[in-house]
Amino acid sequence: MTIQPPPSKWSIAREVIGLLLLSVGTFGVLFTLAELSIFRVALALMVVMAGVAVGGVLITGIAMTRLQRRAGAAVAISGYVSVTACAYLLWQPLGNLAVACALVAGGAWLASEGRA
């Protein structure tokens, strides 16, 4: 097994910019396909932000440094907050469900002593 040098700041910045461009591009595609209907746009945005949240969780799982783990957690949290906001726009009980699921996940994480 070989030991790889830690990633440089530029490579981390490149990854962040790449993920941002990927999300913006995906949002643009879904926005265009939604035919400018508000309900469809909110639903498409919700799908994109769910993907961003999952991507943040995956980044956090494979991260080697503390900075990468924090960046992944920030991406996951911002994606989930956006999903919750879109859920409230679509239907208030759906937004309430998203908040309740976040509380359940936080409680389970605290109950497991912070181990993922």
Rank of each mutant, 00 (worst) to 15 (best):
V29D: 01
G51C: 04
S23K: 01
E35P: 03
A87I: 02
V48C: 08
P93V: 04
R14F: 15
V54A: 13
V24T: 09
V41Q: 03
T84N: 07
L21I: 01
M46R: 10
F31M: 08
P5V: 11
S23D: 12
V48F: 08
T32N: 08
G114L: 00
S112W: 09
L97I: 09
L58E: 15
W10N: 08
S78Q: 06
R69V: 06
T32Q: 12
G28V: 02
P7A: 11
I38T: 11
S37T: 10
N96D: 14
A13P: 00
S78H: 13
R66I: 01
L94D: 03
L67N: 10
L89W: 13
L22P: 04
G114T: 00
F31H: 04
A98E: 04
L103M: 14
G51W: 12
L97W: 12
L97G: 02
A102K: 01
P7Y: 10
L58G: 10
L43N: 05
R69H: 12
I59Q: 02
E15S: 08
I77M: 10
I77Q: 06
G61H: 11
W91P: 01
A105M: 02
L89F: 14
G107K: 01
I62F: 15
A63I: 00
R66V: 12
P7R: 14
L89V: 02
V57H: 09
L22R: 07
S23C: 13
S82T: 04
A108S: 07
Y88N: 02
G25W: 07
L90R: 02
I38R: 11
T60M: 07
A50V: 07
P6I: 11
L20E: 06
S23M: 13
C101A: 12
L33Q: 04
G61C: 13
G51M: 05
V99M: 09
T65V: 01
E113I: 00
V57C: 15
F31I: 00
Q92H: 14
L19M: 15
I38M: 13
A53Q: 00
V57R: 03
A74G: 11
E113H: 01
A53M: 10
S78I: 12
A71P: 00
